[in-house]
Design a protein around this nucleic acid. Sequence first.
DNA 1: AAATAATGCATAAGAAAATTAGGTATATAA
DNA 2: TTATATACCTAATTTTCTTATGCATTATTT
Lengths: 112, 112
Amino acid sequence: MYSSELIKGTLKTIVLKLLSKQEKMYGYEMTQHVKELTGGKIQLTEGALYPTLHAMEKQGILSTEVENVGNRIRKYYRVTPTGRQVAENKVNEFSAFMETMMVLLDIQPKMG
Amino acid sequence: MYSSELIKGTLKTIVLKLLSKQEKMYGYEMTQHVKELTGGKIQLTEGALYPTLHAMEKQGILSTEVENVGNRIRKYYRVTPTGRQVAENKVNEFSAFMETMMVLLDIQPKMG
DNA sequence: AAATAATGCATAAGAAAATTAGGTATATAA
DNA sequence: TTATATACCTAATTTTCTTATGCATTATTT
């Protein structure tokens, strides 16, 4: 697990990237997906995730549809066309930011 | 300039790295140094920097010495031996975090 | 000479984003 | 039947940063 300091500010970017790759997802699914993809090193907390999802919906970046699974509710999120643009910008910005940080911190890129 | 969201949580890491490379520095000098090194893309604000420096000093990560330059005061900061270890850990953690984020966001490493 | 910008420190109010902790409810495994 | 997993949500608090302000000295521009 990374210190929570580092992860700050990346939540929206992560959510938007997930939803750019996968038509629709619900909140809990996102937490599990990220946990798996990062080997448990990043774990989205629900207390942070849900308010952020609501905010992004309000901003027109995400849209929702509710589905009933058994007696439970699932709220699926999708990126809107606007959101898709925001997603791309966010990822590009993060990418540029990382390059800058690598210079600043003398970090060598890993050769695949 | 990157959105302030992204830069959040990296301030201590940046300061510790600067001071690991350069025996001693004063606050204002750090702001200028980072500005130059990043082509203005990251700018440490004094409102964030000074309180953080004070906190790190209190934690024993940094030590200070005041110098009079003309009639002005300069407060130099150094990393303590403890701080040097913290610095290394922080940079390593950030490096690992970036790798994780690259996987998560499908970002390709730049070949030098 | 006077005004502005740059240097250099500092704090304080407020905003933003997260953590922590709680709540509701169903399904399943031990 | 008790815990764990699924699935949503909110509220109080904490952390961290921004914005604004203040003080003082020195260098530069007009």
